[in-house]
Design a protein around this nucleic acid. Structure first.
Ligand SMILES: [Zn+2]
Ligand SMILES: [Zn+2]
Ligand SMILES: [Zn+2]
Ligand SMILES: [Zn+2]
Lengths: 138, 138
DNA sequence: GCTTGACCCTATAGCGACTATAGGGTGTAT
DNA sequence: ATACACCCTATAGTCGCTATAGGGTCAAGC
């Protein structure tokens, strides 16, 4: 009950997280339930702010909430081997890598499709044609 | 009522689309409602197959369902200018480009973070540290 | 003392694009 | 007759929030 308590709005401003999102993290077990004031307001400790910052940085790096949960659990048990941390981070990086490759080959196709449109009306549009099923063959 | 009718399973196999997804497209106005057999089974015409193929190719290229709907409408009105088609395709390509760039800069950070972990226990783990809020500064 | 306004609360529904489940009916082959 | 593949509707779940409805709390100003 010291004066160091923070309101949900304080956490929101400090981390750039919407208030609803903070409540969402609590409901989903990422952020522990804080104490309450007499008026039933959430009263956070500085540790909550640290934890929320951690969550936001991990989310900014694209980790899923499940991965963030796992990273939080690992970071709480500071004597453990960090091999599990490494596994999560590498799995995520691999997925990012895969997504980049997928999008790059997608862009190649989109570039070709867009480039091929030298027409005026939809009937001749090469973009539409590239989507339509083989128009001549049965 | 000719013998050319196709069941939902036929469309599913022909396009690699799950049956539930086909029903979902119908409910969301992408695929027109087909006739029904006496047993209340959907009975598709070849035109439905063409339309579903169109949808799938557009989805494979990453267009949103809203974009697919717009492309379908445009492709139905074959005398129209294809400028609107071009706008949709370029907007989508620009977004793909943006996503690639975002993921590439994300990957740079992830690579750095992962590379920095030469530790054994979580207490020293550079990955966890990179997520935790500045540990010394208040 | 009373109102205004910023802030907070819970509970619920919505987004996109499906996917899965429950609880049935149909059609055909053996 | 019964097994089985297939089909039907309706509803809820996924992910990571975001938005809404319908309230309660608290400090400041008049
Ligand atoms: Zn306290
Ligand atoms: Zn064109
Ligand atoms: Zn027919
Ligand atoms: Zn480490």
């Amino acid at each position: 009950m010291s004066s160091t308590h923070l309101s949900i709005g304080d956490l929101s401003r400090a981390t750039g997280t919407k208030v609803e999102t903070i409540r969402f993290y609590e409901k989903n077990g990422l952020l522990p339930q804080p104490g309450r004031t007499e008026g039933n307001y959430r009263a956070y400790e500085p540790a909550h702010l640290n934890r929320l910052s951690f969550i936001r940085r991990a989310r900014d790096l694209g980790f899923s909430l499940d991965q963030v949960r796992a990273l939080l659990t690992l970071s709480d048990d500071r004597s453990q081997s960090c091999a599990a941390v490494d596994v999560i981070a590498r799995a995520h990086r691999d997925e990012v890598e895969r997504k980049i490759k997928d999008l790059q080959s997608l862009k190649v196709v989109l570039d070709q499709v867009i480039e091929s449109c030298h027409c005026n009306i939809v009937a001749d549009c090469a973009i539409i044609e590239s989507l339509a099923p083989t128009p001549e063959a049965s």
